[in-house]
């Protein structure tokens, strides 16, 4: 009994529930005649697509600015990077490298400015971040309309004005990483490049958290007074965390888009933060503590559930169930984290 109790404590209620659901859905999926290799392919692909966005939550949680509900900021500069490289008509690796090299410096500047704001509103980061993100996205909607892009594949062919809502990446860097060194094993397609890229990003973040600077960043978040009394400039590390998070979000959307095959503009970046926040919380992070392990477990469980639940529910029911399930789970888990006392794990 004691062992079960301890195990339960270690796994935690939310992860237990999600895992049970995932297994139940997997069994019923196979029972309903869905192809297991196809499902696994999908899970792995979606894991790779989303994991960097979830990784972007790590630095801000560690530095005490909490869940970054303003990933949209980084996403927007990722989109701009991609747009510029498409405007230039670049293809293949070139287009991706140019997209990164435009997106990253912009994200650094934006992250720095946003970090300054975060330091002036300590204690309200999540609420402000959320609405700041919404405002930026809606402001950018106007920008997409009037932005001076000329390339025919970007703007509406006729009649319309401004950039299209969805842009195909076929000619630039679509599925570039997904196909890189990809192979099939037992009917499951492994997108080696995609996974490798995430591994590199996660490795870098992991390495960083173990450096002196990364340690100081973590200390700033886990005890502000302790940090100050040990000579740390807490505000500086908070800004640094926001910069890293914003840059990761910018990289994240480029990776997501290349796997998805399309660039989504206008209102699409509105809700990028919520699933990412939910993923890392499902993975075992709290509003104050997060590690790479939480990212990997959380992304896998969350995306896995979505991938498996969608066809199963669509067979038994109808309508936009997948979306509803996504909303309910992701907001439910964030709610759960918000109402926990400090020190408890989610």
């Amino acid at each position: 009994m004691e062992i079960i109790k301890n195990l339960y404590k270690k796994i935690g209620f939310p992860r237990l529930i999600i895992t049970v659901f995932l297994i139940m859905f997997l069994i019923s999926a196979v029972g309903l005649g869905l192809s297991l290799p196809d499902l696994l392919t999908d899970i792995i692909n979606r894991f790779g697509m989303n994991a960097i966005m979830v990784l972007a939550m790590v630095p801000t949680i560690q530095a005490g600015t909490g869940i970054n509900l303003n990933l949209a900021l980084g996403v927007i500069f990722g989109l701009i990077g991609a747009l510029v490289s498409m405007e230039m008509g670049l293809q293949g690796w070139n287009s991706m490298i140019v997209a990164f090299s435009i997106a990253i410096p912009l994200a650094i500047i934006a992250g720095y400015l946003y970090g300054l704001l975060m330091n002036r509103i300590k204690g309200q980061e999540m609420t402000v971040g959320n609405y700041f993100g919404f405002s930026i996205v809606s402001l950018m909607c106007i920008f997409w309309l009037i932005a001076p892009f000329k390339n025919e594949s970007l703007v509406w062919a006729m009649g319309g004005k401004g950039l299209r809502v969805t842009l195909t990446l076929e000619d630039s860097f679509g599925s570039l990483l997904n196909d890189f060194l990809a192979f099939k094993i037992a009917g499951v397609k492994i997108p080696t490049g995609l996974l490798l890229f995430f591994a590199i990003c996660a490795g870098l973040v992991y390495l960083f958290t173990n450096t002196k600077t990364g340690t100081a960043l973590r200390v700033s978040g886990s005890g502000e007074k302790f940090a100050v009394s040990n000579g740390l400039n807490v505000d500086k590390y908070r800004i640094l965390s926001v910069i890293i998070s914003t840059v990761l979000a910018a990289i994240g959307i480029i990776i997501y888009s290349q796997a998805f095959g399309f660039l989504q503009l206008y209102n699409a970046p509105l809700y990028v933060s919520m699933p990412a926040a939910a993923s890392i919380l499902i993975g075992g992070a709290t509003l104050k503590k997060a590690t790479i392990t939480h990212v990997i477990i959380g992304t896998f469980l969350f995306q896995g559930l979505l991938v498996v639940a969608l066809p199963v529910i669509n067979i038994v029911s109808e309508g936009s169930m997948a979306e509803i399930i996504r909303i309910t789970i992701s907001n439910g888990i964030i709610l759960y984290a918000l109402t926990r006392k400090a020190g408890d794990t989610a």
């Binding site: 340690t215 200390v219 007074k225 302790f226 020190g343």
Partner: peptide, 23 residues
């Protein structure tokens, strides 16, 4: 609040000031 990081391990608490100030 000031003396300890309650949610960090003992060894880290012991070493931290020396890590940060004296490397």
């Amino acid at each position: 609040e000031v003396g300890l990081l309650l949610d960090e391990p003992i060894d880290f608490n012991i070493a931290y000031t020396s890590i940060e100030i004296k490397e």
